[in-house]
Design a protein around this nucleic acid. Structure first.
Length: 279
DNA sequence: CGCCAGGGCTAGC
DNA sequence: GCTAGCCATGGC
């Protein structure tokens, strides 16, 4: 299936550390495990060429996941009012914020703390292989990320065997929270970012960074932004008049980029991690 | 071997 | 309110 790609840079977006269940194939295409299916997607000039084990609403699904229904140009224009952003936005054109499954993102980013992408993916894959639904696509087996009901009674020992380390107890705490607050993840959609952050951080193992990632990469909150070592480094180099700590950066971003502060910080992260490495 | 990974919790000031 | 030390694990 051909889908107008609306400017997306597929590879940059998929390999930016937003999602953990993507493989780059030898032919340059990508295989991604979305919440309810497996897709293979390839960048072809003006189009994305997409195939899947499940063709129902595929176009709609893909456009939603890759955020192709939204015009980023108007965001970029607004952010370009800031001199620094203006300079990096050329590099960031085509970077999209994915719309990932709530539950999967929630658990995945708990695992992400003080961890690295390859290990995060390995743990998520093991959990999925054991508890998720099997899907066959192009003669290969894949496993969807389990639903809450499929892993709600997982033991701490088994989690540990999947390599999540000290985060095992955090996942248990998160699952317990969901048991007593069934609609919690759905309700977050109705809350503003500040309220949602307050609730998410009740859960042990979820702090500001992890909650921001959940809200940005699954709830599409452009006013939620993860501040990590890369962003702090970028700030200390490029905004020397701003103190490079969580609170100061947050305050500055709010004031300067308002409701787009999350996208701005994400661009910064993307630029800092990728463009600079090439030099 | 020691270091670090898109952090967060806890204890001790 | 702030910060140092700690937390599992494995790749380098």
């Amino acid at each position: 299936m051909k889908i107008l790609k609306n400017n997306i840079k597929l590879k940059e977006t998929l390999l930016s550390g937003q999602c953990f269940r993507v493989t780059e194939e030898n032919d340059g295409s990508f295989t991604c495990i979305l919440d309810d299916r497996v897709i293979n997607v390839r960048d072809d000039n003006k189009y994305l060429i997409v195939d899947s084990n499940n063709l129902n609403d595929l176009e709609e699904k893909v456009k939603y996941y890759f955020d192709l229904n939204i015009d980023y140009d108007k965001f970029d224009d607004k952010l370009s009012e800031n001199e620094y952003m203006k300079n990096i936005i050329k590099f960031c054109k085509g970077y999209k914020v994915l719309r990932q499954n709530h539950f999967e993102t929630f658990i995945s980013y708990i695992i992400s703390q003080n961890n690295r992408v390859s290990r995060i993916s390995a743990s998520i894959n093991k959990i999925s292989e054991k508890y998720g639904k099997k899907v066959v696509f192009k003669d290969k087996e894949y496993f969807l990320f389990p639903t809450f009901d499929e892993i709600k009674d997982i033991s701490i020992e088994e989690l540990r065997s999947f390599g999540v380390g000290f985060r095992d107890k955090y996942i248990i705490d998160a699952l317990n929270y969901l048991k007593t607050n069934n609609n919690f993840l759905l309700d977050l959609e109705k809350q503003n970012t500040e309220e949602a952050t307050e609730i998410l951080t009740i859960i042990k193992g979820i702090g500001l960074k992890v909650s921001s990632c959940i809200l940005l990469f699954s709830y599409h909150r452009f006013d939620a932004f993860p501040i990590d070592t890369w962003v702090i480094k970028n700030f200390s180099e490029n905004f020397k008049n701003i103190k490079a700590d969580q609170n100061s950066i947050k305050e500055f971003a709010r004031k300067e980029f308002d409701e787009l502060s999350g996208l701005a910080i994400q661009y910064m992260y993307h630029y800092e991690r990728n463009e600079k490495d090439k030099a």
